[in-house]
Amino acid sequence: MGSSSRSGGLTIRDVGMVYRRRDQVTTALTGCTLDIPEGGWASLIGASGCGKSTLLRILADIVKPTSGVALVGGVSPAEARSARTFALVSQQSTMLPWRKILANVELGLEVAGVDKAARRRSAEEAIELVGLKGFEQAFPSELSGGMRQRAAIARALTLKPRFLLMDEPFGALDEITREKLNFELLRILKETSATLLLVTHSISEAIILSDTVAVMSPRPGRISHRVEIGFGHDRTNAMRDDPAFGAYEAELRHALHGPASSARPASHPIPAFAIH
């Protein structure tokens, strides 16, 4: 099923994005192409401001690209959104401040019209999974940033989405919690055969959680490198000791800050800020 021309995965074809705000024009993305087959796992890494969130927001139908095509499961992001095939964990791990954590985690299912008992069960399960048991009755303002992130992940997981779009979901977590959740996420992805697109600033996290790591470079944002991670889908913490892991790390580090940026300038340098 994955090899048809209308891929059932995530497709970004020649996507460009220009933000216009009064007299300021920002080219956030230019000529981005990325294909993630159904059930595949991909990460986006790159410097701050290079357009990673923008790419995710295009797939989540929050903004429309100014050029190119984005497909989620072979259909437009708008169709995917109304069919509720994807879940987005936003960079801000948004919570409704007037809802306690349990009700926040239930929100997605509540909006989808799932009955109370069933959504309560899913939410409690997801809360347990992300290690927030005991905080069901706390308000978001009473939690730390990392705990809110985990609540946002829990909310996305209750939806059992075919496509999981995550924007730095583990950014505020300590190393140990982060790694634990990385492997929980892998388990869930395998269980549900969901497709993952993850934005991260951690090279090792990108390797652990991906078949493909796309490296983005800024001004204007584009995908400059693609590194295939050949670890298959049966992964354990031992993969870190694999010499291949270190090699991927080195390759990605080079792609991020290595000679590439100075030796290979953008083919058509467009100033990020141009006067309109």
């Binding site: 989540a60 139908d61 929050i62 879940a87 936003s90 948004t94 929100l107 509540e110 909006v111 989808a112």
Partner: peptide, 21 residues
């Protein structure tokens, strides 16, 4: 917040849910 409205939007909430929730 715009973020909260975006969340409801990505969850594909109806206008009535948006109002009440």
């Amino acid at each position: 917040d715009a973020e909260v409205m975006e969340l409801l939007y990505t969850l594909s909430a109806s206008p009535r849910q948006e109002l009440v929730m």
